[in-house]
Design a protein around this nucleic acid. Sequence first.
DNA 1: TTGTAAGCGTTATCAT
DNA 2: ATGATAACGCTTACAA
Lengths: 342, 342
Amino acid sequence: MNLNKKRTIYDIAKELKLAPGTISKVLNKTGNVSESTRERVLSYIKKVGYVPTSSARMLKSKRTYTIGVVFTEESEIGLEHSFFSSILQAFKSYVENEGYELSFIVRKLGKNHLSYYQWCMNKRVDGVYIVVGDINDQGLHEILDSKIPAVSTDMFLPGLHTVVSDNEQGIRISLEYVKNVLKKKHVAMIGGPVTSKAFVERLIHFRKYVEKYQFETTEEDIVLSESFGFTGGLNAVRKLLNQTAKRPEVILAASDDIALGVLKGLRDLEIKVPEEIQVIGFDDIAFAKHFTPALTTIAQNRHLLGETAAKMLIQLMEHPEQQIDEVITLPVQLIERETTKK
Amino acid sequence: MNLNKKRTIYDIAKELKLAPGTISKVLNKTGNVSESTRERVLSYIKKVGYVPTSSARMLKSKRTYTIGVVFTEESEIGLEHSFFSSILQAFKSYVENEGYELSFIVRKLGKNHLSYYQWCMNKRVDGVYIVVGDINDQGLHEILDSKIPAVSTDMFLPGLHTVVSDNEQGIRISLEYVKNVLKKKHVAMIGGPVTSKAFVERLIHFRKYVEKYQFETTEEDIVLSESFGFTGGLNAVRKLLNQTAKRPEVILAASDDIALGVLKGLRDLEIKVPEEIQVIGFDDIAFAKHFTPALTTIAQNRHLLGETAAKMLIQLMEHPEQQIDEVITLPVQLIERETTKK
DNA sequence: TTGTAAGCGTTATCAT
DNA sequence: ATGATAACGCTTACAA
């Protein structure tokens, strides 16, 4: 019994004096196999380290055990963006444990140029995970219109299963903290670009709660960053401070990347944080706690986000007949650090 | 001619009144096909958007057009680490353009637990890219001993093709800059953990050039960070300042992550940068320029690193008979920012 | 309960 | 230059 030989199901069958089909059955837990042969096959397989050849399995059955990942690489976000990377990391660990594999959806396959949908059809992915995608991308809609199971942690669209952090809660607890703990009344917001639904929500709820809690906030105190990142925040805070008659006491930023830019802008203007202006971010990226001053922020549970998306997608792929909620909302948490002070 | 139908090579053949084998030949540029039929097939294929089913192709031919990626997820590094992520990003873009696909090597496949090597054999990857790997990992050595083409941007081992930044040059220009521009004589170094070959090299060359250029540096001025990141640098700088009789004028950090920790440590001790101590990093991570004060550092060309590794691996996979250099060294560059001052 | 055999969509080897 | 055909390793009726 040579352990280094590459075995097929036929070899196993012969070595065990069984039929190839029987081996296949125990591998797939399908059909009837006696408990004793089942055990015998399983232990033998384990001993010789046999693993089915996925291409053969894929060719024959329609399952591929592959999940297509949409991770739009345009502009500033890609594998390099740590917030999304860590959600993806959690997703990846979970699905790999369940025997699935990730494959990045790339528009071209070999020499041809394909739409997302064509790509999925050709790779025969069992499901699609949208980590970051452009809501205006026609290709995404093709996928949703098809019957390929899909989940997202970034965007929501009717018919798309999504797991998101509770943006309303995040804004609400920020504002309650400003009101009740910080005891300030004049809050400004640096919003993110409205291409992201999360940013839109945070803005809407900001407007809502600012009114509800009767803050001294006007439209003048709201500026939208023109980009996702640091530079966007930097420019936005300059604009904010230019256009407001009265300097705000607290600034909420739509994301930590933006908040870090805001902090930099404030320092450039020689405005002390938290003494003169206090700042609250959103996300809790790794760097938030390393920055000086360390950033107070609303922490999203990135690991849970990725893992929940994974569970949701597996559910959708393996039990398409069962109905499940389209949106799962995960709670967020305020992390107090140095950019705010009681 | 229905465009949405999933076509096989047989369909194409029938629709074009040709034999399946002929289609295959033009697809693979193999065997003899007349120029006219070649054109006819190619344009038809393009029109109907046909793409060969990869599982069938993989099953039959031994090529899989898949590259296994080793990206050790232990401890602090993973998809979340932006330095490696961006190298990987560049690698990925390049190979995808050439029609290859990435697949993360994960030790378990389905329910079984595999060694790297077994995994590669089972997936039949055409090559392996080691982004970050543990040099002590036995599994890696199995791969290198096998005939699977492999490249790395992180480690070097005899027999492993590698593309790396020129660590010697990086340390040399740092030190020349300290000597000739900054005009300082007392330099300390916070090294990285010696599990990474790059850190080892940086340390060796530091010792060498410090002597060559006659700096006032003793062994007391060298501290090794016990980890890759921010916290490691933070702790190391405390230790350094505790153990040195005379405070150094300049600190070289083995990486930007460590340097940022150093900066934080210095701030905690109320030591002004660059007035009292100047700091130089290594890598030029995205955050280096956003930090306050912005970090002077040795920039590695991450995009070129990834792309060069990609070219090297493709060369190895497609022309295994040709000999190529085992190590490609890429130049680095000093980026002057605020943590140093003339 | 187990064995047999026909595909899955390619590629590659022969004939023609 | 093109066509027929046997693999590749597996799944899945269906037969035994």
